[in-house]
Each structure stands twice: as structure tokens, then as C-alpha cells.
């Protein structure tokens, strides 16, 4: 790992300033993806701006029609939160199965969404529930936020402050993990919301998380059997030594059915 200048601002405003004045500044949240990346020298920023000392960015609260989670809230806290378990149990379940225990103690929701790894779990929840990503500048709807693999609507120096999840009538999340890495080979989030059924898929798409319209159409009445019957085209899905695009397409329907059956 190359060395860098380290900043630990106490406010979002100071963090934005520090990023702006660095020649190649990078924000670090929990660091569970960024630190391995730096150690492999896949990135070598001039400055690291750590959000860990900004108290405003942590915490979970009930708000309006749902819940709001601070960007620096670790996965373990989301998983064990009574507020999350009560309002959106599928979100607590998802958080409880990210990475491993040690990763869940450090990794954060804001970091996961800012990174938008194509096999990450949180993007599926955010898109599946129709969340709103709040930043220091604006609010971004999940449908506008995810813009392809490792790519988001965030501008340079824009920092996620919180994520608001509207409470669905029911939701479920099922993933099929690659047995060595434990990353989702395919993960499917299903939600029955006021605005209709939403489905989001992680792990499978060449462009990262996406909504499979065939499955959403099949799920109009939120029936597990209907989900299993949906035919998902494999054209834009990943194909690698762990599974072909056709295999992943099949898994999407199967997992959507399981997620509906498990939905609470």
C-alpha cells in the first residue's frame, strides 16, 4: 500500500472541504473494500478522508413511512436493530448475511452503496425497496442512483449521509453464494410496495444491480410459483467459471420464488 495523507474530519462539511483540496482524495467509510484495494495497489489516492469520526452519520431511526439509516452505520447494527427488524425484517436479514461477522462490524451501508460492487447486497435492498439516497447536496431515488458496475449518480466530492427506506407491505431477500468467496452469485430482493411489486437482482447483471421486468410482471399477485415460472433473458448476465449466464438467469427466477415465499 502506498502512503497517503490521512484526514479525520468531525463534520460532513469539513470532509467535503478535505476531498476538494486533495489532488486525488478518496473517502473511506468502513474500509472493508477500499483497504484491500489499496493494499493490492489497485488504487493509490493522495489523501484518505475518513468519515469515522462524524457522529451525525451514524444511527437508525423511524421516519415518516419507513426508516432512515445513517451512512456510517455498520451492517451488524442494521442486522440487530429492533427498528429495522420491526419495520423491514428482510433488510435486517440481508445485513446479517453480508460478508462475515468481522466485516459486518466495520463495513457500512454508505460505503457499500457508494462503491456499488456488482455482487454487493445493499444495492439490491435499496433498488428493491425504492430507497432514497441522501447526500450532502440532494436526495437521489434508487432508480436514478445505480448507473452500472461500480458506478453511481454521486458526483466528485458528494458524500452519502443517510439512506431512507420506505416500509413495504412485505419483502424478502435470498442469495445463492459462491461457496469460496461468499459473494452473491445471484441475490434477489423482492418487495410488495404501495406502488406495486419491485424486484432487484445483484451478482448477475453485467451492469450491476438491476430490476428484471419479466419477474416483476410475473409477480403482480406476489405468488412464489409465478416467480419460478418467469423467464429471464440471459443476454445481459455475467458468465464466468462459477456459472453461465443461463444458469444465473435460472437462479433469478428460483431465488425470486424463494424470496417471495420467505417474505415478511
Amino acid at each position: 500500500m502506498h502512503n497517503f495523507a490521512f484526514h479525520r474530519p468531525a463534520s460532513v462539511a469539513d470532509a467535503v472541504k478535505a476531498v476538494g483540496s486533495a489532488s486525488d482524495g478518496k473517502i473511506i467509510a468502513g474500509g472493508q473494500t477500499l483497504l484491500p484495494t489499496l493494499r493490492q495497489r489497485l488504487a493509490s489516492p493522495s489523501d484518505l478522508i475518513d468519515l469515522g469520526a462524524i457522529a451525525d452519520l451514524k444511527g437508525i431511526k423511524a421516519e415518516g413511512d419507513g426508516i432512515t439509516i445513517g451512512a456510517m452505520t455498520p451492517h451488524a447494527e442494521v442486522a440487530s436493530s429492533a427498528i429495522v427488524q420491526g419495520a423491514i425484517p428482510a433488510l435486517a436479514h440481508l445485513a446479517a448475511h453480508i460478508g462475515d461477522r468481522q466485516v459486518r462490524a466495520r463495513g457500512t451501508i454508505g460505503g457499500s452503496l457508494a462503491n456499488n460492487d456488482p455482487a454487493a447486497d445493499y444495492p439490491a435492498a435499496a433498488l428493491g425497496l425504492g430507497a432514497t439516497i441522501r447526500t450532502n447536496k440532494r436526495e437521489i431515488k434508487a432508480d436514478d442512483y445505480f448507473q452500472g458496475m461500480f458506478s453511481t449518480a454521486l458526483e466528485d466530492g458528494e458524500i452519502i449521509t443517510a439512506v431512507h427506506f420506505p416500509k413495504p407491505e412485505k419483502a424478502g431477500y435470498e442469495k445463492f453464494v459462491q461457496p469460496a468467496s461468499r459473494f452473491a452469485l445471484v441475490g434477489v430482493f423482492v418487495a410488495k410496495t404501495k406502488g406495486g411489486v419491485r424486484v432487484a437482482v445483484t451478482g448477475a447483471g453485467q451492469e450491476g444491480v438491476f430490476r428484471p421486468k419479466e419477474v416483476e410482471a410475473a409477480l403482480a399477485n406476489f405468488s412464489a410459483d409465478a416467480a419460478k415460472g418467469a423467464k429471464v433473458p440471459s443476454g445481459n448476465l455475467n458468465s464466468d467459471l462459477h456459472g453461465s449466464a443461463e444458469y444465473r438467469a435460472h437462479l433469478i427466477s428460483v431465488l425470486a420464488g424463494r424470496a417471495v415465499a420467505a417474505a415478511k
Binding site: F6, G31, Q32, D50, A105, R106
Partner: peptide
């Protein structure tokens, strides 16, 4: 691998995946 696991503020974390300055 988790061989570097220590407790930080009472929680198990991988000490190879956190900076001392954090």
C-alpha cells in the same frame, strides 16, 4: 482468513483491514 482478528471496542474485527489511524 481472520487470523488477525482482535476486538475493537468489544467487537471482533480483522486487524489487517483497518488502519491504526482510523
Amino acid at each position: 482468513c481472520g487470523a488477525c482478528t482482535v476486538h475493537v471496542n468489544g467487537k471482533a474485527v480483522k486487524s489487517c483491514n483497518a488502519l491504526a489511524v482510523q
